[in-house]
Nucleic acid binder design. Sequence first.
DNA 1: CCTACCGATCGGTAGG
DNA 2: CCTACCGATCGGTAGG
Lengths: 209, 209
Amino acid sequence: MSPRRSAADARQTRAAILARGVAIASVEGLEGLTIGRLADELTMSKSGVLGQFGSKQGLQLAVVDAAAAQFAEEVPDRTRDAAPGLPRLLALCEAWVSYVEREVFPGGCFFAAASGEFDDRTGPVRGAITGLITVWQRDLRQNVRIAIAAGDLPADTDADQIVFELTGQMLALNHAFRLHRDRSAPDRTRLAMGRLLGHPLPAAALQRV
Amino acid sequence: MSPRRSAADARQTRAAILARGVAIASVEGLEGLTIGRLADELTMSKSGVLGQFGSKQGLQLAVVDAAAAQFAEEVPDRTRDAAPGLPRLLALCEAWVSYVEREVFPGGCFFAAASGEFDDRTGPVRGAITGLITVWQRDLRQNVRIAIAAGDLPADTDADQIVFELTGQMLALNHAFRLHRDRSAPDRTRLAMGRLLGHPLPAAALQRV
DNA sequence: CCTACCGATCGGTAGG
DNA sequence: CCTACCGATCGGTAGG
């Protein structure tokens, strides 16, 4: 096997770097993710890692995109069976709670951690993080609006307010689960979200017994 | 003026280091706070900074304590006039919203940032952060219980659940205010907290005009 | 994707 | 609280 690899090999290498990078960054942060450590853990040279992304910022942007793809698989993609509006909203909330409970990322919600780390900075990495979170919240809001139009939420509901409060319960769960290792936090979150939406979360009853 | 300073001078130097340290750490994080940068900004030598704390971890612990003292001044100390129970609870919530709105720390809530940074680690710094947050949440819970006993909250209220949900709204505010620069977030938080407690926050009406 | 470097900066120490 | 260091590690480059 020659040291010069094919394009397919390069793609595989890139995927392996990103998988490790996402896991490390969810724990150590996107700044704490270093090229040297990544190279060490993958038994590669630093320049081999860096060559794929050009710079640390390029690596960070690729890691954010890879985390977004994984999040999409683990949360919204699991709600495809639920109809738009209240059913989808409840499914998205339950999928989010489950995503934290299952510890999809070893350091908890990747985007909660990344937004806390980059909220005081400027530049493309912050932009990528805020863009992805904005899209996620727009998806929630859209389903709130459909639920209102369908009569499944009160007509005077403020969609932005509901999304704001749901976001708070998501952050509370990540906080309590990671910092206090509070195992009752997922059910507390389900309860709070169910009250906000006037309906219990779909899987909560099953998981409670 | 000789290079050998008195104990009073040393105390002043220490206070100056901690004031800068808290501000830097609220933006860059407790790991991103470096001895070299601190020395630079204070036109001191690195060893002059390090000598006060022994190690970077000693500096981090002192910075956490200094931030806790400032938080105590800016939030709970401002609610001394409110009677224990629901009045104090409403005052604590309003003081917290105001603390974020006034940007007491340049990087937003110091403890929201620090707990996100250290939630996956072990050691005394994590311990100090969790300890302070636990005390703060115990204070909230205690006032919820007094409010229940006084009949100001329903008798079947779950105090831990209320504290959990209030914490979520605090985190939602910090998140929206820092990441999205959403200026409507403070009033959204007031609204959510007021609903949770069944009473509007004390200063909200005045500030709304 | 590798070896062999680069200057800058990290936390920390010796000794005054 | 200073100067003068230390080894380790940072992101990144040259050249193959």
